[in-house]
């Protein structure tokens, strides 16, 4: 099998989960309801735990240990979508991102569960249940806020429109699309995006929100190739502040 293609996809998955997990964890103690502090804390742990599993896979494929991979690279070495690294902003953005991003992640895990590469199919099967629970939470909030009063609906619509270019950036094609497809490792970003659009459309139809025609939305690409927004490096600096203060130490 094409190991480079497998590694590239594993990095994307690992970095996506780590960065979004980090963002989720920033809500702990600051959410609009205690229940949301708890929900975001629990999801953050799932995401970070998922990223760890993918870093372990990379380690088994000859990479460095998970702590070095996660805490030791600069932004240019990260393959997460830019969407994941954007600051939490207010609760509306966090919920919209949570919904759009996790819907994509859920489908990606489902697709991985069917992978011809066992390392992926194992993790896909293992984690799709966790992510399903996340999209239930996201959808519940989407329904509540998306069917609330006019002011809230307008706020959510605004945020949705702002988030869509970044959300489409999640599906930035890699240079391995054909190899992944040919070997049955992964059915590809285009297929993923098509399934995502269906699900997103269906969920939004039950709210007062409208999905603009996606052909008019220009995706924000670059993250998959290490070209990030100004927000990623400060996040990484913070994440590595302690562990990198004493190289070689155990914590």
């Amino acid at each position: 099998m094409n190991i480079d293609a497998i590694k590239d996809l594993a990095y994307k998955m690992a970095d996506d989960q780590l960065i979004i997990g980090h963002r989720h964890s920033e809500w702990i103690g600051l959410g609009p309801l205690l229940e949301e502090d708890i929900a975001f804390a629990s999801k953050a742990q799932d995401k970070v735990g998922q990223s760890l599993a993918f870093y372990k896979l990379l380690e088994a494929l000859g990479g460095q240990d998970p702590d070095t991979l996660a805490f030791g690279r600069t932004a240019a070495g990260f393959h997460n979508a830019i969407f994941a690294e954007l600051p939490n902003g207010e609760f509306d953005f966090s919920i919209i991102r949570h919904f759009l991003f996790d819907t994509a992640e859920f489908i990606r895990f489902e697709m991985l569960a069917a992978s011809a590469y066992q390392g992926f199919s194992n993790l896909g099967k293992k984690f799709k249940g966790e992510v399903q629970y996340h999209i239930l939470h996201a959808n519940e909030w989407l329904q509540q806020l998306g069917n609330s009063d006019d002011k809230t609906i307008a706020r959510m619509q605004n945020t949705l429109d702002y988030a869509l270019p970044y959300a489409l950036g999640v599906f930035e094609p890699s240079k391995w699309e054909e190899a992944l497809l040919a070997e049955g490792i992964f059915a590809g970003e285009r297929e993923l995006q098509a399934r995502w659009e269906e699900r997103v459309h269906a969920a939004l139809k039950q709210t007062g929100l409208t999905l603009p025609s996606l052909t008019t939305v220009e995706p924000v690409y670059g993250g998959r190739y290490g070209q990030h927004s100004e927000h990623l490096q400060p996040l990484l600096d913070e994440m590595g502040e302690v562990i990198n203060s004493e190289p070689g130490a155990e914590w």
Binding site: H22, E26, Q45, V48, A70, M239, V242, W251
Partner: peptide
């Protein structure tokens, strides 16, 4: 939490 050193402590 955002600065915890390594996966084990972060989780």
């Amino acid at each position: 939490i955002t600065r915890a050193p390594g996966f084990k402590r972060k989780l």
